[in-house]
Design a protein around this nucleic acid. Structure first.
Length: 295
DNA sequence: CACGCGTGGAA
DNA sequence: TTTCCAAGCGT
């Protein structure tokens, strides 16, 4: 239970955002909804600094969904470069096709229609509806969850996965006015990204310092179980990454021998290649070579 | 619902 | 060096 009224949180965070927001190209007034959507998908689990150059290239090459939809999906995977989780590139291409075929080439403003697009989940649908179309939605990402956990709930970290209680809290905190709600959504996220960070929060720079439930409680350590980091060395994910890197680097289809060279364990290599084919990230050709997907 | 899914910079 | 972690999604 908090004694701080939402109005104070809104004023503090919105004023802070007005002074400290980063100038990012997808926040420019002239940025299209498509530009916002592309940025949101690229930013799923990938840092802003790494996204920036790829985002500019994408929007320059494919300024509309129909431009991307006209290309083979493999071109999206190649242009994705090393942003990671390349299935996102495939889904973004599929979303572009759906936007062209089912929405007249225009990114839909409706939350449910956004949610129905490939690769667009609860967070991204709300983010696009809010950031690109100025609507009132609870936009709950990892930054927002961390700010809410500390400032409102008084916990050092949010729960391992998004809970119904967190969603209820985010809805309860939304300003009533639509335009204010949209600014609040991006402002809280920015606060979590720049000040209320995961590792070393800069509480001295926080506009909520004197109202933060976690600080007022003496910054107690995280109570729950420590979440396990993802293993990497020797995992299928590493092997998939190596296989796909070979295919991205080659403008032409690649002989199987080139893929064999990138990982010593033949069984794991074969399993991963099969997985990539099943995912639609790799296309096997009749002559035994492999390529990024053409269809 | 817990898990698998890439990548690389910073602490 | 190792570990953490960065605007999640789909199954």
């Amino acid at each position: 239970m908090t004694t701080t009224t939402p109005d104070v949180l809104h004023t503090r965070v919105l004023d802070w955002y007005a002074d400290h927001a980063r100038s990012l190209p997808w926040r420019e007034p002239g940025c299209s909804p498509w530009g916002v959507l592309v940025s949101e998908v690229m930013l799923q689990q990938t840092p802003v600094a790494r996204v920036l150059p790829r985002w500019r290239e994408w929007l320059d090459r494919w300024p509309t969904p129909s431009d991307l939809a006209a290309e083979p999906p493999g071109e999206a995977v190649r242009a994705w470069d090393r942003l990671g989780y390349p299935r996102r590139a495939l889904r973004l291409h599929a979303a572009a096709v759906a936007i062209r075929d089912e929405h007249g080439g225009r990114v839909p403003a409706d939350h449910a229609q956004l949610l129905a697009l490939p690769g667009i989940g609860a967070y991204t649908a709300a983010a696009v509806a809010s950031f690109a179309f100025g609507q009132r939605h609870a936009v709950v990402d990892t930054n927002v969850r961390r700010v809410h956990a500390r400032a409102v709930t008084g916990d050092a970290e949010p729960a391992p996965s998004l809970t119904a209680a967190e969603n209820r809290l985010a809805v309860a905190l939304l300003p009533q006015d639509e335009a204010t709600a949209a600014r609040w959504a991006v402002a809280v996220m920015e606060l979590g990204a720049l000040v209320c960070t995961a590792r070393s929060p800069r509480c001295d720079a926080c506009p909520l310092l004197d109202r933060c439930a976690w600080v007022l409680a003496g910054r107690p350590a995280h109570a729950g179980p420590t979440r396990r980091g993802q293993a990497w060395a020797g995992t299928d994910r590493q092997v998939r990454g190596k296989l796909l890197a070979v295919l991205r680097a080659s403008p032409d289809p690649v002989p199987a021998a080139d893929l064999d060279a990138c990982w010593p364990d033949a069984a794991q290599r074969a399993r991963c290649l099969d997985g990539l084919v099943a995912d639609g990230l790799v296309e096997p050709l009749a002559d035994g070579r492999f390529t990024l997907p053409r269809t």
